[in-house]
Design a protein around this nucleic acid. Structure first.
Length: 273
DNA sequence: AAGAATGTTACATG
DNA sequence: ACATGTAACATTCT
């Protein structure tokens, strides 16, 4: 689940929990593939103080006073949970960071796709990622430059993290509905007006999803939860995602589902052009 | 019980 | 170099 709004929700939760300024007294990695060199990682991080917690694309960045940055990618089912350090360990908790105030940050991941990366140069690590759509210095001109010429379909382009950072399968579909554009449209066929609609839709969809605390699908263990273990509310706002054959909210036509680039893709064949 | 699931990457093919 | 397609990762849910 975790796309930009979910990752942003996690980061805001961590900030609210006042983890910045806390020192890490103990680290346990119980799933070795989580990070390149678990032993070196533990050695490196123990004793560090968290100096910042931010987001870039779908990465959570924990910056330490040592100058190193821990980048966490949740992939499909990863979660970061804040608990008391004596809380019983549950299944799928693959890493834990004990803080000097008696709490722990735990990494929970059913499918084990999530990864940690420790770097002394976060900028270099993140250099190839695409536009940050909600940044203060976001520029529509830059957006057009990146999207406008692409010969690929809009769906593929929106999912390409090197073009635009942070959209995933859910929000790509929602954005295209909001912009009234078919996922199959080639990006290079968009008029200036349509590019503007696309740009505005991305920002609106992301902003409102963040306001609602992200999207949580279903009730399983893989479901998105924020750092307090709470579900989001945005799943109730979907216009097309997982609404196959249900009536379009605007025109009542049945929502269609096709597969593009191995991902299920939902759209209204009447409203989207 | 087969198929799909929010993400990414590596590899192959055109 | 670009575009598309497939498999793989690991597990759970429908």
């Amino acid at each position: 689940m975790p796309e930009l709004p979910e990752v942003e929700t996690v980061v805001r939760g961590l900030l609210q929990s006042n983890i910045v300024g806390k020192t890490i007294t103990e680290v346990h990695i119980r799933f070795p593939k989580l990070i390149l060199d678990p032993k070196a990682f533990v050695k490196d991080v123990v004793g560090s103080t968290i100096s910042a917690c931010t987001r870039r694309a779908k990465y959570i960045l924990l910056t330490f006073n040592t100058g190193k940055t821990l980048l966490i990618h949740l992939r499909m089912t990863g979660k970061l949970l804040i608990v008391k350090k004596n809380d019983e360990l549950s299944a799928h908790e693959h890493a834990q960071f004990t803080l000097d105030d008696g709490r722990q940050i735990r990494f929970h991941d059913v499918r084990k796709f999530g990864r940690f990366y420790l770097t002394s140069d976060a900028n270099e690590f993140l250099a190839d990622l695409g536009l940050e759509m909600l940044d203060e210095d976001f520029s529509f001109v830059e957006f057009c430059k990146r999207i406008g010429g692409a010969k690929r379909s809009l769906k593929t382009v929106l999912l390409d993290q090197k073009v635009i950072a942070g959209l995933g399968n859910i929000y790509a579909d929602e954005v295209l509905f909001q912009a009234r554009l078919l996922p199959q449209r080639k990006a290079c066929t968009l008029s200036k007006h349509e590019l503007k609609a696309l740009c505005d839709s991305i920002q609106q969809v992301l902003r409102s999803a963040i306001e609602r605390g992200g999207s949580s699908l279903g009730s399983g263990l893989g479901n998105f939860l924020n750092s307090y273990g709470q579900a989001g509310k945005n799943q109730n706002q979907f216009s097309v995602y997982q609404r196959t054959n249900l009536p379009c909210l605007l025109c009542q036509s049945p929502i269609q589902r096709v597969v593009m680039g191995q991902r299920s893709t939902h759209f209204c064949p009447h409203c989207q052009k």
